[in-house]
């Protein structure tokens, strides 16, 4: 598994990578937060493609990434999380996502999955989040429409 240090390296280097590639916006680059591919799209949507099991270290790495993205987006952000390739998440990891979802600088969280397994995974996260800002969608299009409402 990833150590917390490994997981945060790519995020810490985000600004450096922008400068190195000569690109001006972050959505033009894929970042890896641990095993999850992450990017900023449409100015304030953090798009996470989750791969494999989601443990607490992986989830904690997203807290660090969140702060960077909020800085880059210059304000609160939305999440769109693709669960199609995700594995099971631990209870501790879900608590971290609850924390991320309920932060003041997080507007909405859209969980996306086009098969029954993803739906089950989404449900396990949704039941722990108290704030009514988290929904499950079968397609990214539906999710983005809701996030932009």
């Amino acid at each position: 598994m990833f150590s917390k240090t490994d997981l945060t390296v790519t995020v810490v280097n985000m600004q450096f990578m922008l400068e190195k590639t000569g690109r001006s916006t972050v959505h033009e680059i894929d970042f890896w937060v641990g095993a999850n591919k992450t990017m900023l799209i449409d100015e304030n949507i953090i798009y996470v493609v989750a791969y494999g099991p989601q443990d607490v270290n992986q989830a904690n790495a997203h807290i660090d990434a969140h702060k960077k993205f909020v800085g880059l987006a210059k304000g609160p952000v939305n999440y769109m999380i693709d669960l199609n390739n995700a594995g099971k998440s631990t209870a501790e990891a879900r608590k971290v996502w609850k924390y991320l979802s309920e932060r003041e600088d997080t507007y909405k969280v859209a969980l996306v999955g086009n098969h029954p397994v993803a739906r089950v995974l989404a449900h396990f996260v949704m039941v722990v989040v108290q704030k009514n800002n988290l929904r499950f969608f079968k397609t990214e299009e539906e999710a983005i429409l809701w996030l932009k409402e």
């Binding site: 199609n84 099971k88 998440s89 631990t90 209870a91 098969h115 029954p116 397994v117 993803a118 739906r119 089950v120 995974l121 396990f124």
Partner: peptide, 21 residues
């Protein structure tokens, strides 16, 4: 295959993990 059986298996696995915790 990410079918209904897999979703049932995934749900059971996570429930077992939660019970263990």
């Amino acid at each position: 295959e990410n079918n209904m059986m897999d979703s049932l298996a995934m749900g059971l696995n996570m429930m077992i993990d939660d019970i263990r915790l």
